[in-house]
Amino acid sequence: MHDAWLLFHRQNNAEILAPLSYLKTIIRNLLFDRRRRSTFESTTDAPFEQAIGNVEVTSASPEQDVAARQIMSRVMDTIDAMPERQRKAIRMYHFDGMKLREIAQELDISVALVHKLIADGVKICMQIRKEEL
């Protein structure tokens, strides 16, 4: 509680519209941090076998690996077949890590249009993925 109050008190209270909600959020976040820290600390001093005992094994079978590669190949082919602006926008956003504003400047279009192009392209890719599963 003391840590939460100190964090709350450091803020400029004139700018906080709902101080009680803000204080509750600080408390919740501190509890999450404390839980994460205690989980981490309980595994750092434990023997290796005990620490990995709770780790779920999620290795894919060879068949699942091949299926995932085929789906990815179809998705990439679909992206390549999209109109040029949409293809470029998707590649810049998802593969190059560019922001919407940067893509809009590069393609000389609005941010809203960039968002729409990417959202429509992702929707098409998700449909292909669902068809394959």
Rank of each mutant, 00 (worst) to 15 (best):
I52S: 04
A112M: 11
D108M: 14
D3A: 13
M126T: 06
D96G: 02
L6V: 12
D33P: 05
E102S: 10
T25S: 15
Q11E: 05
L20T: 09
E132G: 01
I26P: 09
N54A: 09
R34L: 14
T44A: 06
A119W: 00
H94V: 01
A112N: 13
S59G: 10
A51T: 00
D3S: 13
E56N: 06
K99S: 15
N12E: 12
I79A: 01
L117A: 03
A67M: 08
A104W: 06
G53A: 02
R35W: 08
L117D: 10
D65R: 15
E102Y: 14
D120T: 02
R36A: 13
R87E: 08
L20M: 08
A4K: 04
I27V: 04
R35Y: 11
I109G: 07
V114S: 03
R69I: 14
R69E: 01
S21L: 14
R36M: 15
Q11S: 10
A104Q: 06
D120H: 07
I79R: 07
M72E: 12
I26D: 08
E56R: 12
R28P: 02
D96R: 04
D96L: 00
F95Y: 04
P19Y: 03
Q50N: 08
A68C: 04
D33M: 07
A119D: 08
F32H: 14
R34V: 07
Y22G: 03
S42F: 05
Y22D: 02
D96H: 02
D77C: 03
M1K: 12
D65Q: 15
G53N: 03
A81E: 05
N13V: 05
W5A: 03
R85K: 11
W5E: 06
F95H: 05
N12M: 07
H9L: 14
A81H: 06
R101W: 15
E49G: 04
I26A: 07
A60I: 13
K130A: 09
W5Q: 05
A14I: 14
A119Y: 00
H9G: 11
Q11H: 07
M92R: 12
H94W: 00
T78K: 15
